[in-house]
Nucleic acid binder design. Sequence first.
DNA 1: CCTGTTTTCGAATGATATTTCTATTTTTTG
DNA 2: CAAAAAATAGAAATATCATTCGAAAACAGG
Lengths: 299, 299
Amino acid sequence: MSGRGKAAEEPSAHSLETVARKRSRSLAALGYTKPQTYEELRAVLASGTVHFPKRLRQVAIFLWQHPSEVALGTIAQVADQAGVQPSTLVRFAQIFGYSGFSDFQLLFKDRMKGSWPDMQGSQDETGEPNANLHFLNGMVGACQASLGRIGNDFDIAAFETMVDHLAAAELIYVIGSKRAFPVTTYLSLTLSQQGVRNVLVDNVGSTALDQVGCITPRDAVLAVSFSPYNSITPDLVAVAHERKARILTITDSTFSPLAKLSDTWLEVVEQDFGGFRSLAASLAVGMALVHGVVARRTG
Amino acid sequence: MSGRGKAAEEPSAHSLETVARKRSRSLAALGYTKPQTYEELRAVLASGTVHFPKRLRQVAIFLWQHPSEVALGTIAQVADQAGVQPSTLVRFAQIFGYSGFSDFQLLFKDRMKGSWPDMQGSQDETGEPNANLHFLNGMVGACQASLGRIGNDFDIAAFETMVDHLAAAELIYVIGSKRAFPVTTYLSLTLSQQGVRNVLVDNVGSTALDQVGCITPRDAVLAVSFSPYNSITPDLVAVAHERKARILTITDSTFSPLAKLSDTWLEVVEQDFGGFRSLAASLAVGMALVHGVVARRTG
DNA sequence: CCTGTTTTCGAATGATATTTCTATTTTTTG
DNA sequence: CAAAAAATAGAAATATCATTCGAAAACAGG
């Protein structure tokens, strides 16, 4: 919001050179051009051509998932929510060629302004006095928003590929921890009910590694993983990958460590409300996968 | 964003009097209460009961017509666009009982955050030739329908009672099998993450009966069960009932064997599509329960 | 036309946010 | 395993912002 600094001038040939010599790492120096719009930024992030270290990746994930927080908040608030230092945000912005966070933030503000061109008139009077009911409504809203996103942009090609691989597999290993575990549980259950043989890797008795150690190249792994990616799932999937199994993943961003291990992956972004995350979209996609596999095998 | 000032305390009877004597004009002094939401503010402005002098009216009109500018901009930018001095904006905010512009601006930011939780809404009703996509849309529809039913008829009283009992319990046993298991898994996980001690009765090693054999009258059981009711869940709950624990149930019909064993129960009806049942509504209600318990215990 | 009150303006002030810089930690490389 | 490079955290510095306050202007009533 402040401290814009007088160094806000466009990166001239000279300053580019200087930066490149001094810090040696800026996307501009690598031939990238500074994203002028939010969509361009998203495209760059999604391309996966840029590999960030831990904290910067953390920032990228947060920007991806909570653009409105970035637009509305101060650098301190955003840094806090993303779990990094304010200076890390500045570094991130500068890597993309901006003079600092304020400059960078304009992308997000413009985006918001653009997609909400000062409506006037629409009124919804939903006075909600009860706190519990309020939360419930918020949670329902988060679920519906998550489901809504599926309708908008869904990678049907990736989905079909996943169905193909799963249908062709001799045995399907279903892997997921923490928040993803309810999803894998339901997947495994419905697969079994539909007569599709599968193994739910639940790590009871800490036997997960031994289980995935039995995977053969004819098998497929259906992995589900959400940010933060600090569970055992990536390790298990890495083993499966070494053993040359097909890896099919449901995850919530390009930055998932599973993305690069996977033959195909689907992005399913779940919304949260008050820190409680929806699973509705993932479950729906999961059911569709099961249905697809059954249809492919029987049809 | 800054200079919040130490004069942020609510207008007490005394300060009201003082202000009224000194400046003689604040809506609080006129019996108005400080608007807590953007909608309330709009209502006050629209009512036309307040007559502002020229510059303040200018402010009111600008706020009405360009709420997003107010949310995203700094006081200087907003003042500039509205054609007034920054201090005029501060005065305006203070008339409504806020300590200053920053405080006032939160109304607009919250409003934006709330109604822009990441894109949502637009559904394309294109006739879908792809079978997989068709099923996915059907599944999404089933989820949304299930969620929608919550909004219509929800027994908030039963919900509150359940929260009370759960919050009062020494230890919470979470029980559910088959389709209900993903729900109990997520319930147990989030409860633990929120610091609420609980036992997930998962029947690994067929130890479920022994686990529930440890239940005391000070404990509570949170049971989830769906039709058909042929699983082990009713048996486990029956044991818990004999041991005089509180029984709180989420189920899908009056005919559930759990209903008669329960102190309180909530009906959550999940819709299915092609034989695949949604869990969205149960999960949403479950999260609301967890949230309620945490709020009750900490608040 | 004058006087008391209300409103507005704009500079001074106090507070906050952003950025820069450096020591430390982590990672990579030979 | 050691040395070099990169990345990070944290604090200090700096720029910007929000608020206050006194004086000038506009207004209303007599």
